[in-house]
Amino acid sequence: MFKKNLNWRLGFRGSSTARRLSVYRLAWTTFFLLLVAGLTACNTVKNMPPANLSEPGWTVLQGQAVWRPKLTAPEIAGDLLVATNLDGRSFIQFTKTPLPIVVGQTTSNSWKIHFVPNNQTFSAPGHPPSKIVWLHLPRDLAGAKPPKFWHFTKKESGTWHLEEHFTGESLEGYLNP
């Protein structure tokens, strides 16, 4: 009785050949899923060296910015530091005195960002995702096209505005050389 109920619950109906095929199918499916999971595992950047802004080749801009993380969130005003290097690296830091809020950097083939209040760090090889506006700001300021769904406006007064209309996230500010 137990064997019959167990076979019915596991889906083993009919002949022993059908049961054997079901076991093989289950084994191959499990193997395939484990293989795919292993090959697509997260490939994070382990040790991105800290940016040394006193090295030659860095252009450092400092100013003020107002960040609204989403439409319903309050605005956060703070100090902004944006640095770019001739080799394609960039560094950004948004600080609400006395603590940094966001610290990020990019290289030609990787990116890393740290949200200090939540103690969250994200990094990966390749280009930064379009959802992380901070890592795209240095390129946008240099005249590159902003990520999809983001709108960048540079005003005559020297201020700039970067906004994503769907989420309401925005970043506005000015920088002095």
Rank of each mutant, 00 (worst) to 15 (best):
1 M>F: 13
3 K>W: 04
9 R>W: 11
9 R>F: 13
10 L>Q: 08
10 L>Y: 13
10 L>C: 14
11 G>S: 02
11 G>H: 03
12 F>N: 03
12 F>K: 00
14 G>V: 09
15 S>H: 09
15 S>F: 08
16 S>G: 10
17 T>G: 11
18 A>F: 08
21 L>G: 01
22 S>F: 09
22 S>N: 07
23 V>E: 11
24 Y>T: 06
24 Y>R: 08
24 Y>D: 05
26 L>K: 05
26 L>A: 12
26 L>Y: 07
27 A>M: 06
32 F>R: 03
33 L>W: 10
36 V>N: 07
38 G>N: 12
40 T>V: 09
42 C>P: 04
45 V>T: 09
45 V>Q: 05
48 M>D: 12
50 P>Q: 14
50 P>A: 15
55 E>C: 05
56 P>F: 08
57 G>C: 08
59 T>Y: 09
60 V>K: 10
61 L>V: 04
64 Q>H: 14
66 V>Y: 00
66 V>T: 14
68 R>T: 07
73 A>N: 12
73 A>V: 03
75 E>Y: 02
77 A>D: 11
77 A>V: 09
78 G>N: 10
78 G>I: 04
78 G>H: 05
80 L>C: 09
81 L>D: 00
82 V>M: 04
82 V>A: 02
82 V>L: 05
83 A>W: 10
84 T>I: 05
84 T>L: 03
86 L>A: 15
95 T>I: 05
95 T>R: 03
96 K>Q: 13
96 K>V: 11
100 P>L: 01
104 G>C: 02
104 G>I: 00
105 Q>I: 11
108 S>L: 12
110 S>I: 07
114 H>G: 02
115 F>I: 10
115 F>M: 07
115 F>K: 01
115 F>G: 00
116 V>F: 02
117 P>S: 00
117 P>Q: 01
119 N>I: 14
122 F>C: 00
123 S>W: 08
124 A>Y: 01
125 P>F: 15
125 P>M: 14
133 V>E: 01
133 V>I: 07
135 L>A: 05
137 L>G: 01
138 P>N: 14
139 R>A: 15
140 D>H: 02
144 A>G: 04
144 A>H: 13
144 A>E: 15
145 K>Q: 12
146 P>H: 06
147 P>S: 02
148 K>T: 15
150 W>L: 06
153 T>V: 13
153 T>A: 07
155 K>Y: 15
155 K>T: 10
155 K>H: 15
155 K>L: 12
156 E>A: 10
156 E>V: 04
157 S>T: 12
160 W>N: 03
161 H>Q: 14
162 L>C: 02
162 L>K: 03
163 E>Y: 03
164 E>K: 07
167 T>N: 10
170 S>W: 00
172 E>T: 06
177 P>V: 01
